[in-house]
Amino acid sequence: MAPPPLASREAVREERFSDVWSNELNDAFADIARYYDRANEIAALGLWSTFLKRFMQTVDIKPQQKVLDVCAGTNAIGIALLKREPTLDVHAMDRSAEMQTVGQQNATALGFQIKSTIGDVHTLPFPDNHFDVVTLQFASRHLRVREVFTEILRVLKPGGHFHHSDMLRPRNPIVKNLYYAYLKTCLNFTSLIVGSSPAATKFKQYFIDALDLFYTAEELSIVLRELGFVEVTVDTVFHGMIGFHRAVKPATP
């Protein structure tokens, strides 16, 4: 089934998933936190670290910059950034205290400091024009995209860079159907291997449904431009299954 038109996509996603996003998803991620990184590596057939490396290659950073990682999870992005440039001032925000607890443990074990904020990323508790770089990886399918991207645009400094990566809805219907079949299989296998709790296991169908109502790489580029970002570019892998977007806040209003 074709997704709704781009203009009404967010309203349809909100109607379909609002209750899950608001009331249920946090419990699932609270359980997933303890094995999140391992589960991703299993589900991605060992390619998870490769996806992270590919994403990091798109991120522009300079010494002393202030960086915000939105939906930071276990701080994989913040840690990778600090390994590359230890002088960065890295902030992490996530709604899951459990995920950030694991993330803080991961950062501390490597001698890195990442400033953590727990809260709803749809309303970022930071001033306007505050960050040089904002990153967001593998979370937008669970968010009100236009709200979060608007907040990211607000907190970026003029000329600041937004780097985004996520699983996307392939444009080719054959690729899409093969992709969904693979995801259903690997989610079942991964949940069995890592011993997912019922709170996490019941969301397997949701993950497929959320992706089916998400955006293609081209559609997400349009959304970024409509919200006011410029210099929007995207690289994709696996025929559009995963996309790496880069966008810039205009230097002048």
Rank of each mutant, 00 (worst) to 15 (best):
T87I: 09
Q205A: 15
G243I: 11
C71S: 13
L192C: 04
E231N: 15
D31C: 13
P127Y: 00
T50G: 03
A44F: 07
G160R: 05
A44V: 01
K83Q: 12
A33S: 15
N26C: 04
S116W: 00
A11Q: 15
E231M: 08
A76D: 13
I222F: 04
E218W: 05
I208S: 02
V70D: 09
T58E: 14
D166G: 12
V230R: 08
L124T: 12
T201L: 08
P63K: 02
K53E: 13
G228S: 04
K66P: 01
I174Y: 10
K249G: 07
N40H: 01
R141I: 13
A76E: 15
L52N: 15
S22F: 10
G243E: 10
Y36I: 06
F238N: 10
V102Y: 00
I42Y: 11
A28G: 07
I222P: 01
Q205D: 15
F17C: 13
G160N: 06
I208V: 15
T236K: 07
L178M: 06
E147V: 10
I42Q: 07
R95M: 12
A80V: 06
D132W: 01
L168R: 06
N40V: 04
G159C: 14
D60T: 15
K204L: 03
L136V: 14
Y206W: 07
Y182E: 09
R169V: 03
P125I: 13
I193W: 12
L224N: 08
R225G: 09
A11W: 08
K202W: 00
R95E: 04
Q65R: 04
F131Q: 03
K202E: 10
F55G: 05
V90N: 05
R84H: 12
S22D: 13
Q64E: 14
L52D: 10
F55R: 02
G78T: 11
L143F: 07
E147R: 14
I42E: 06
P253V: 09
K53P: 00
G119S: 15
R154Y: 04
L45A: 14
F203P: 00
R38M: 09
E85F: 05
Q65F: 01
K66I: 03
G111P: 03
D209V: 02
S49V: 00
R95P: 09
R169F: 00
G73P: 05
M56P: 03
S116I: 14
R171V: 07
A210G: 01
L156V: 03
N129E: 14
F138S: 07
P253H: 08
Y35V: 13
T216Q: 15
P125V: 06
M93P: 01
Y182C: 00
I118V: 14
D19F: 07
K157R: 11
R141E: 11
L143E: 05
W21H: 11
V234S: 01
D212P: 01
H163V: 00
D19Q: 09
G111W: 06
H122K: 04
L213R: 10
R169A: 05
